[in-house]
Structure formats: C-alpha cells, structure tokens
C-alpha cells in the first residue's frame, strides 16, 4: 500500500499527461474564436506532433499515373478502382486502411502519403 501511495502523491505534483485541446473551455462562437486567435488576442495550444513517415491520407497525381493498375491489384481493401470510362483511378477514402502498399508499388510515384488524419465525415461516398 505504501508503494502505490508514494507514486500517487508524486503524480499530484506533475503536469497532466493527456494532450490538451486547442482551448481550455469550449468557446461560444468558434468563428469569433478563430478570428481572435489570428489577431493574437487568444493563445491556442499547439496540435499533437506527428512523427515523420506517418501514414495518413493518400494523394493521387493524375499526370504521373501511367494506368498500369498495379495499385488496384495490391490494395487489400479494394479502395483504388480503375474506372474504364474516364480512364482514371478512383480513391475511396472510407475503405482505405492506410497501409501504404500502393505507394510502395507505384512505379512512377503518382501516389504519396500525407500527414492528414482528421478525416471524419457524414456520407459514405
């Protein structure tokens, strides 16, 4: 009992460990809050740092693509689809598992991983 009691008292004296929201309390009007932050009236807590080589959303460059369709063969979630009529690759964001295998396979570098991970939405298409 004594060991855990010592540890708990030490925790009281330390800063909170969790990542902080941009503001301590929810503002009444978000647009006004963002305007104030731009002018320097309010200080925002910085966002969570993402390490380099993080696997986020995929970015597709249409000009570099040579339509070899290797990415569609390798994707485990069938998130990349070759549309015959328009001759382009369609990326379904809501099926993507962010594994990065398509980026490894692409011979011309038309697919890239970005650092975006805040991707919630309301519709599935």
């Amino acid at each position: 009992m004594i060991v855990i009691a010592k540890e708990l008292v030490k925790q009281l004296l330390k800063k909170p460990f969790t990542n902080l929201f941009p503001a301590k309390y929810a503002p009444k009007s978000i647009k006004q809050f963002l305007r104030d932050a731009k002018e320097g009236k309010v200080k925002l807590n910085p966002p969570v740092v993402v390490p380099p080589n993080f696997r986020g959303k995929i970015e597709y460059d249409e000009k570099k693509c040579i339509r070899c369709k290797l990415c569609t063969r390798v994707c485990p979630a069938k998130a990349l689809e070759y549309v015959e009529k328009e001759n382009i690759i369609k990326y379904h964001l809501f099926r993507c598992a962010f594994c990065g295998q398509c980026v490894d396979v692409c011979p011309t570098g038309a697919l890239k991983l970005t650092k975006e991970f805040l991707l919630a939405g309301y519709k599935k298409d």
């Binding site: 925790q11 390490p51 993080f54 696997r55 594994c99």
Partner: peptide, 24 residues
C-alpha cells in the same frame, strides 16, 4: 498509472513504423 507508462512504448512504435497499432 500503467496506461500512462504504456504510452512511451506506443510512441516508440509510432516513431519506427508510422502508426501506433496497425503497424504494417
């Protein structure tokens, strides 16, 4: 207390592989 201690190893995993859980 233990979940706080575990955060350090998840940070190392993210640093090496790019994601905390599904390492790929």
């Amino acid at each position: 207390y233990i979940l706080k201690a575990r955060e350090r190893v998840l940070d190392i995993i993210e640093y090496i592989t790019g994601n905390r859980i599904t390492k790929g």
